[in-house]
């Protein structure tokens, strides 16, 4: 089994400020922002980590 990394968006409001920066840059269009809820489609995400860099507050982690 390939070692599939998991992506975690801290979206409970502890870190995320619902700014949409990650949504706009995800090349696969798999992050969704709905007012104060952010979700992403795990089956589409390639773990490219672009959104991790785009987040101004560091709410996204891949490990």
């Amino acid at each position: 089994m390939p070692n599939k990394k998991s992506l975690h968006i801290e979206s409970s409001g502890q870190l995320c400020i619902y700014c949409g920066a990650c949504v706009g840059i995800c090349p696969l269009n798999c992050i969704y922002l709905d007012e104060t809820r952010i979700t992403f489609d795990e089956s589409v995400c390639t773990r490219c980590e672009i959104c991790v860099k785009a987040c101004p507050v560091g709410a996204i982690e891949i490990g």
Binding site: A21, V23, G24
Partner: peptide
């Protein structure tokens, strides 16, 4: 629909940004 536009992509109009083509702001 703003910076995080999805509609353009749904329509098949390429709006992808390279890392160098975007600022992250606070």
């Amino acid at each position: 629909d703003g910076f995080e536009s999805q509609v353009g992509r749904w329509a098949g109009i390429p709006t992808d940004l390279a890392l160098r083509d975007m600022d992250t702001c606070l």
